[in-house]
Structure formats: C-alpha cells, structure tokens
C-alpha cells in the first residue's frame, strides 16, 4: 500500500482534501509523531495533507486582551525561543527545554502536538492548566475548544475530519502562576511517565483558585477537580488530603514508561511538589 502526499496552499484547499470518510486521510504538519506510527506500521495512511505551506498559521503575538495567539504551525523551537512566551507564560518556556530534543523541537508544531491526542505529551496538560483554547476552522463554521475539552480519549479528539486547529490562545495569566513537573523513566527529555501541571491564583499567598491537571499517567489529560475543591477550601493545609484524593480519583494507565502503581506513587510526590513550588515562590 502506498499513499499520496498533497501540499495545499490554502486552508480551503486543505479542508477539501480532508473532507472524506476515509479515516486514513490525515493532516500532517511537523509529522514527528505520525512518522513514528507510520514507520512502525501502526498507521498506514492513504493520503497525507501537508499543512506546512499554508500561510497565516505561523507566529506568536500578544493580543489586545493580553492573551497570546500562537499559530498552529509554530514549531516547538520557536515557542521555546519566544520572548513573548517567556514573558507571559514562562512555564511553557521552561517545559520545552526538556520536551524531546532540539531536532524534534525544530520540526514538531504546537497544533499537531495537540491534534494528535497522544496522552504521553507535556503540552496538553500544561496548556489545559493555563486555561488555553484552540481556535478551529473547518469546511463549516469555526469554533473554539478549550484544550481540556479537545482531547476526549486515548488518541481521540473532538475535532472533525474536515477541521483544523489554526491557532492556540493562552489567556492572560494576570495573578495566576504555574508549574509543570514531569517525571521520566529514561532520559530527562523522554516522554513523561507522569506530568503534573498546576496553575494557582495565589494572591495574598492564599490559594484563591486553581487548576490541577495530570497527564501521561492517564489515557487523557485529567483535571483533578476533587483535589482542587479541597485546596480551594482548606488552602495549603489541605495539600496532603488533596494529594490523597488525586491518587484515589484518577484511573492510572500502565505503559512502557511505568506501572499504574508506580505512577500513582509519582503523582503523590509530584503534585505536592508542583503546588509547593508555586507557594514557595511567594514566600
């Protein structure tokens, strides 16, 4: 079996090429993840729709409302080197330094990293904790989807076959602060065995509001709502109880990076450290 490689030059042309019932037709941006699936025979495409030549999907800019607009074709290396990202979402800059290696970051794109729906990624839980959303266009009307609602399951997203992520929007973080902790079983830049993203609104050094998201240990990035509730009510004194609640509420997944039991133990440690890391910054 072979496949065709098509390189549309406009979004409209891309939607036309993607608008089919054939599940083996795929959009292709950086392709670093899809290539692994194709080389191992897990995925055999009939058509790759290469998005790289489509104008208007690149770049990073600060919007009037203080949010960051990041074009879907922005490479992870561009994100890593962006002064705007370092200033308005420093946790992203920090996380990217250990997200795979330089060559992969030179090629992989933020839109593809989210659309792939791979649970073993750093950006989906992190962007979810930052309350980011994706701007989606398609043959029909465009829409916005929160990153948390984008991934619906194991390699499953709420995107239709004729829809594409055109940009990611990170809202102004104002008094919110974030941390991302990743634990790897092999090298530091490996896929995470567990990733924990925490965003806290901790003005006056008391937790006003927060978002806790765990990734990689679960089949999709998972909000720890019960733990959030405990910390909202009890503040930092509830940290131990919140950690216990997280361990009890999450369905952990065994994979090549570790057993579910081990990941459960990791969550206890890393969730506490991530929250503590932010609180310690303010003392």
């Amino acid at each position: 079996m072979t496949y065709e490689i098509l390189k549309p030059e406009t979004l409209q042309d891309a939607f036309g090429l993607l608008d089919t019932d054939d599940p083996m037709v795929r959009p292709f941006s950086g392709g670093t993840a899809l290539m692994l699936m194709m080389k191992s025979g897990i995925f055999s495409p009939s058509r790759l729709v290469v998005l790289r030549d489509i104008p208007g999907l690149n770049g990073i800019r600060l919007e009037e409302d203080g949010s960051l607009w990041i074009g879907a074709l922005t490479t992870l290396a561009e994100l890593e080197k962006s002064d705007l990202v370092a200033q308005h979402a420093p946790v992203v800059t920090h996380a990217l330094r250990h997200l795979s290696n330089r060559r992969v970051r030179n090629v992989a794109r933020i839109g593809g990293a989210l659309a792939h729906g791979d649970p073993h990624m750093d950006l989906p839980p992190l962007l979810s904790a930052l309350n980011a959303e994706v701007i989606v266009e398609g043959s029909n009307q465009g829409r916005r989807i929160s990153v948390q609602d984008l991934v619906t399951g194991y390699y499953e997203t709420s995107l239709e076959s004729n829809e594409l992520i055109v940009a990611v929007r990170i809202p102004s973080q104002q008094s919110w602060q974030s941390a991302y902790r990743k634990f790897t079983a092999r090298s530091a830049d490996d896929w995470p065995a567990l990733g924990v993203a925490v965003s806290l609104n901790a003005s006056r050094n008391e937790i006003q509001d927060l978002r806790l998201v765990v990734g990689a240990a679960t089949e999709r990035p998972t909000r720890l709502e019960q733990s959030e509730g405990i910390l909202r009510q009890e503040g930092r004194s509830g940290l131990e109880r919140a950690t216990e609640a997280a361990m009890a509420s999450v369905e952990f997944m065994d994979d090549a990076h570790g057993s579910s039991q081990w990941k459960k133990a990791l969550l206890r440690v890393e969730l506490r450290r991530a929250v503590q890391e932010i609180l310690d910054r303010n003392t």
């Binding site: 290696n101 060559r103 992969v104």
Partner: peptide, 27 residues
C-alpha cells in the same frame, strides 16, 4: 534508533538541524 532520539541521522534543512529518519523526502 529510527525514532529521532539518537541523532545519528542529523541533517540540516534550510540551515536547521532535523532528524533525517523522521522527515519525508518529498518535503
């Protein structure tokens, strides 16, 4: 390694390093 992890296939595309094993020749 064939997975972009080891760097033995490093080449430069338009002056930027990429893993040659993960990039389609047509592109």
């Amino acid at each position: 390694c064939g997975q972009g992890l080891c760097g033995c296939c490093t080449v430069l595309v338009n002056g930027t390093s990429v893993s040659g094993c993960l990039e389609l020749a047509e592109l």
